[in-house]
């Protein structure tokens, strides 16, 4: 049951509006840093430490802005981190409720198969490399498609427009070059 773009757009807009009405704008990519911090702090408990007025870290990035990220690592049960866990729950339930994703798509998506065949190893490698570049870029930019582009442009943030210009310039170019055959 494909959803029309109008219904989907209205629902997506309502979610972004509800988030800012009730709490704050939606953002996701910071939580990759928080999870990294939680894992690294479990291995090396000296990474994030409590101070008299909050948290700090031996890592300059976690310690920046008054230890804002260090605090989230020290308190994983915070709004933004739970939000991303809940996204996974919502995505899972939604996918199951429509009978799950196409079985042929489990390892290699359809458009990729049409262009590069169904070898999962090749697909996994590119997905991994893509993930690395996406999150490195998102942290350099200070946000991702959710936080910068959608939440940012919705609030008329200048940074959101700068981000969207860069993201779409690269994404459209790479996609046209990589995916010439249709699924």
């Amino acid at each position: 049951m494909p959803m029309t773009w109008k219904t989907g757009g209205v629902l997506l807009g309502l979610v972004f509006f509800l988030a800012i009405l009730l709490v704050k704008p939606i953002g996701v990519s910071t939580q990759f840093v928080i999870l990294d911090g939680i894992i690294a702090d479990a291995v090396n408990p000296d990474l994030v430490t409590a101070t008299d007025d909050g948290f700090t870290s031996t890592n300059a990035y976690l310690a920046k802005s008054g230890g804002k990220y260090a605090k989230s690592v020290g308190n994983p049960l915070n709004y933004s981190f739970v939000f991303v866990l809940a996204m996974m729950l919502g995505g899972f339930i939604s996918a199951m409720a429509r009978g799950g994703i196409d079985a042929r798509d489990h390892k290699v998506p359809a458009l990729w198969r049409a262009n590069y065949g169904d070898d999962p190893v090749k697909r996994y490698l590119v997905a991994f490399l893509g993930g690395f570049i996406v999150l490195y870029g998102a942290r350099l930019a200070g946000g991702c498609t959710s936080g910068h582009m959608m939440s940012g442009m919705m609030q008329t943030a200048v940074s959101g427009y700068i981000f969207a210009a860069g993201a779409f310039a690269a994404a459209i170019t790479v996609s046209i070059l990589m995916f010439k055959k249709e699924a």
Binding site: V134, S146, A171
Partner: peptide, 24 residues
């Protein structure tokens, strides 16, 4: 922001995922 946007865009097209849609 622009440089990071370029990187994110390139990886987004390669993988077909951005941070939020990837976890979903």
């Amino acid at each position: 922001v622009f440089l990071g946007g370029l990187l994110l865009g390139g990886g987004w097209a390669m993988a077909g995922y951005c941070p939020g849609t990837g976890v979903v």
